[in-house]
Computed example of a mutant assay.
Amino acid sequence: MKTVFSYKDKLPRQYVDFLIDLIPKSFTVERLPFSAPDSQFERALKETDIAIFTPSGKYLPEHLYGNRLKLIQLLSSGYDKFNVEGATKKGIPVANNGGANAIAVAEYTILLILAVLRGLPGNLERGRQGKGMDQDYGMNLNTLHGKTVGIIGYGNIGSKVSERLQSFGAKILINDIKPVPNSSPLNELIENSDIITLHLRNNPQTAGIIGKKEFGLMKKGVILINTARPELIDDQALYAALKEDKLGGLGLDVVTDKKKIDARLLSLKNVIITPHVAGAAKETYEAAMMFAVKNFEHIARGEKPESVINSL
């Protein structure tokens, strides 16, 4: 069977080689960078059985999807940057990584929570400057033990965040757009949480789920963490909450525009912004590729692939 492996151009060659080496030798692999012209994608996808796309996304018009395609396999968890609707119209199943990044994102979420609680950015800077503890002597810092953490989005990642928080002695509240056992109403979770962490996909139902109303319900000094999608938070409402000194800290691994991060965010001491790296780890990529290989084998045997997101 033939496979097209499409990847972000900036992905280092050794990483591309590492991932492709995990594909069974019985598959013929063609490499195709995201920057390749549509004509090249059209030719390649007409001649292939399975197309693999690395994270960051490549939106292709549906007419480029060949009739021979049996599966579009994403190495990412999210799929909002792909033309899933177009693939569905052509009857092509699209599968994501089956939660391969869940452990890495859950660990990173805990990292951000602890870093904000303990004032890590400011203390790192003081350490680099050879300075001692600041004049508050730690009275402005907090432990995670005993805090109420609201988890909005209780899928692969949210559930793993919950598991890890339990070892810190945190009280956990959960909410999801789908019914889950022991969940709290969203407003109740927001009102009672010391820390709120977001783990939802971006879609019309979740976009702006944290807006002016929700910020108004939050405790003063609440810590907000987002390792999911920037669209979940209304930017203007966030800036208003920061201006009103509503938040005690902010940890973002996703922002609306990486090139134009608002100066109001950068000027605050207890704000951490990282470039969407929560899921980035060698183990994540390896797990995603091994999951993809498992789906290749399903296709080769005429079976249905796993973790299909368009119900085909």
Rank of each mutant, 00 (worst) to 15 (best):
K10D: 14
L19T: 04
I20C: 14
I23C: 07
K25S: 07
K25P: 02
S26R: 12
S26V: 14
F27Q: 07
P33T: 00
F34V: 01
S35A: 06
S35N: 06
P37G: 05
D38H: 15
F41A: 08
R43L: 09
A44E: 15
K46V: 11
K46P: 09
T48A: 13
T48G: 03
I50G: 05
A51K: 04
P55W: 01
G57L: 07
G57C: 08
P61E: 04
H63S: 13
L64G: 02
Y65G: 08
N67V: 04
Q73L: 04
L75R: 03
S77C: 10
Y79K: 08
D80Q: 10
K81L: 13
K81I: 11
E85F: 14
E85K: 15
K89T: 15
K89Q: 15
G91H: 15
P93M: 06
A95G: 06
N97A: 02
G98K: 04
I103A: 15
A104H: 14
A106M: 12
Y108P: 07
I110D: 01
G119C: 01
L120G: 03
G122D: 07
N123R: 14
R128M: 06
Q129F: 10
G130C: 01
K131A: 13
D136F: 15
G138I: 12
L141M: 15
L144K: 04
V149T: 04
I151S: 05
I151A: 07
G153K: 00
N156T: 13
S159V: 11
K160W: 11
K160Y: 13
V161Y: 06
E163D: 15
L165C: 07
G169P: 08
G169M: 11
G169Q: 12
L173C: 08
D176C: 05
S183P: 05
S183T: 13
E188L: 00
L189I: 01
N192R: 00
I195M: 01
T197H: 04
L198I: 13
L198S: 13
G208S: 03
I209T: 11
G211P: 00
L217H: 05
G221S: 09
V222R: 06
L224R: 02
L224N: 05
L224P: 12
N226D: 12
D234K: 04
A237T: 00
L242S: 08
E244W: 02
G248P: 12
G248E: 14
G251M: 00
T256M: 12
D262M: 00
K269A: 03
K269V: 05
V271G: 04
T274S: 07
A280W: 15
A280H: 12
E283N: 08
Y285D: 08
A287S: 13
A288M: 02
A292S: 13
N295Y: 11
N295D: 07
E297L: 10
R301V: 07
R301I: 02
G302Y: 05
E303V: 03
E303W: 12
E306T: 11
I309K: 03
S311I: 12
L312G: 09
